[in-house]
Amino acid sequence: MEDDETLNMVLAQILTELGACVASFGNAEDALIGLLENHGACSLVIADHGVPGALKGLEFLQMVAEKWPHIPTILTSGYHFQPTGDAPPVTFLFKPWSVEELLSAIGQAMARDSVITPLGADQPGG
Rank of each mutant, 00 (worst) to 15 (best):
1 M>A: 03
2 E>F: 04
3 D>T: 15
5 E>T: 13
7 L>K: 13
7 L>D: 00
7 L>F: 02
8 N>Q: 14
8 N>W: 01
11 L>A: 02
13 Q>I: 01
14 I>C: 07
15 L>E: 10
15 L>R: 11
15 L>G: 02
15 L>Q: 11
16 T>S: 06
16 T>D: 06
17 E>F: 04
19 G>C: 06
22 V>S: 00
22 V>G: 08
22 V>H: 02
25 F>T: 08
25 F>Y: 03
30 D>G: 12
30 D>A: 09
32 L>N: 01
32 L>Y: 02
32 L>P: 03
33 I>N: 07
33 I>P: 00
34 G>Y: 07
35 L>V: 11
35 L>R: 08
35 L>P: 00
36 L>M: 02
37 E>R: 12
38 N>I: 10
39 H>F: 09
40 G>M: 02
40 G>D: 01
41 A>Y: 06
42 C>S: 15
42 C>R: 01
43 S>Q: 15
44 L>F: 14
44 L>R: 13
45 V>T: 12
45 V>Y: 01
45 V>A: 10
47 A>W: 03
47 A>I: 05
48 D>Y: 04
51 V>I: 13
51 V>G: 11
55 L>P: 06
55 L>I: 13
55 L>K: 10
56 K>T: 03
57 G>K: 03
60 F>T: 04
60 F>D: 03
62 Q>E: 07
62 Q>G: 15
63 M>A: 04
63 M>D: 14
63 M>F: 08
64 V>C: 05
65 A>F: 08
66 E>N: 11
70 H>P: 00
74 I>A: 07
74 I>C: 06
74 I>G: 06
76 T>I: 07
78 G>N: 07
78 G>F: 12
80 H>A: 05
80 H>N: 11
81 F>C: 09
83 P>Y: 04
83 P>M: 08
84 T>G: 06
86 D>Q: 04
86 D>S: 13
87 A>F: 05
88 P>H: 03
90 V>T: 06
90 V>G: 01
92 F>A: 05
92 F>I: 14
93 L>E: 07
93 L>Q: 15
95 K>L: 13
95 K>I: 07
95 K>S: 04
95 K>F: 02
96 P>Y: 05
98 S>C: 09
99 V>E: 08
99 V>N: 03
99 V>T: 12
102 L>R: 00
103 L>W: 03
104 S>T: 14
105 A>T: 11
105 A>K: 04
105 A>R: 05
106 I>P: 00
108 Q>F: 09
109 A>C: 12
109 A>F: 02
110 M>I: 11
112 R>C: 12
113 D>F: 15
115 V>K: 09
116 I>V: 06
116 I>G: 09
120 G>K: 12
120 G>M: 04
120 G>V: 00
121 A>Y: 02
121 A>G: 01
122 D>I: 04
122 D>Q: 13
122 D>E: 07
124 P>T: 14
124 P>E: 10
125 G>F: 08
125 G>M: 01
125 G>C: 02
125 G>R: 15
126 G>T: 15
